[in-house]
């Protein structure tokens, strides 16, 4: 039985790292043994990636927040089914993709598709950048985001996982339940369609 104490240190926002170097598998076992705080540790460890995945699909903070919470709730409910063949991160991505594809398809994408609203949400401009440059960059980013939102589900999921989460093709294949060849073909079509939508 695990008897370690749970202490935390904040290295960066959203990425609190346990002082104890528990692996995800150990934390899952602790959860299964009834230690709820172990699940808190897993949430803190993976929340940033899950949130970012959800944001890529939802296109706005509010929906991404709801979706990310939903992902973790479902993960908690299904923790027993996690067999550890893939990493916990991959498993969470799989849940996340399913939750996002199901939910986002039924919700209005007005915010995601509205370039002005999305552009106003861009906060990544450096201080040296002029206001005009920042605006242009924000608008371009909004256009790309809107174009990605228009891609077919599997193409969008493939592009998000590959480009923004840097997952290898075989891992994406595992998440989407397809072959590596199909993932690459989807990725190719996603990029091709993206180019068409942006020109």
């Amino acid at each position: 039985m695990l008897t370690r104490t749970w202490t935390w240190t904040a290295k960066e926002p959203g990425c609190k790292v346990a002082v104890t170097n528990e692996t995800d598998a150990e934390l899952v076992q602790a959860c299964l043994a009834g230690r709820r705080e172990a699940f808190d540790a897993l949430v803190e460890r993976h929340q940033r990636h899950v949130y970012q995945l959800c944001y890529r699909f939802a296109g706005n903070h509010e929906d991404a927040n709801d979706l990310a919470q939903d992902v973790f709730i479902r993960a908690f409910r299904g923790l027993r089914t996690f067999k550890g063949q893939a990493s916990l991160g991959t498993w969470l991505y799989r849940i996340g993709v399913n939750v996002c594809l199901n939910r986002v398809a039924t919700k209005s994408r007005v915010e995601a598709l509205d370039p002005l609203m999305a552009a106003s949400d861009e906060r990544t401009a450096s201080q040296e950048e002029s206001a005009a440059e920042a605006l242009l960059r924000g608008e371009r980013a909004a256009q790309v985001r809107a174009a990605i939102a228009k891609l077919p589900k599997k193409q969008r999921a493939t592009l998000v996982l590959r480009v923004y989460h840097d997952l290898p093709h075989d891992q994406i294949a595992g998440i989407l339940g397809s072959s590596v060849g199909a993932v690459k073909a989807n990725f190719f079509h996603a990029l091709n369609n993206l180019k068409k939508l942006l020109t």
């Binding site: 959203g14 940033r48 960059r137 942006l198």
Partner: peptide, 25 residues
């Protein structure tokens, strides 16, 4: 297209968001 896609970042939520997210879950 790949270059265009890579340029899009996810806006960083407030630090408070991360502080409270796991509590909400």
């Amino acid at each position: 297209a790949l270059t265009d896609a890579r340029r899009v970042d996810v806006p960083e939520p407030s630090p408070l968001f991360w502080t409270h997210f796991s509590a909400r879950v």
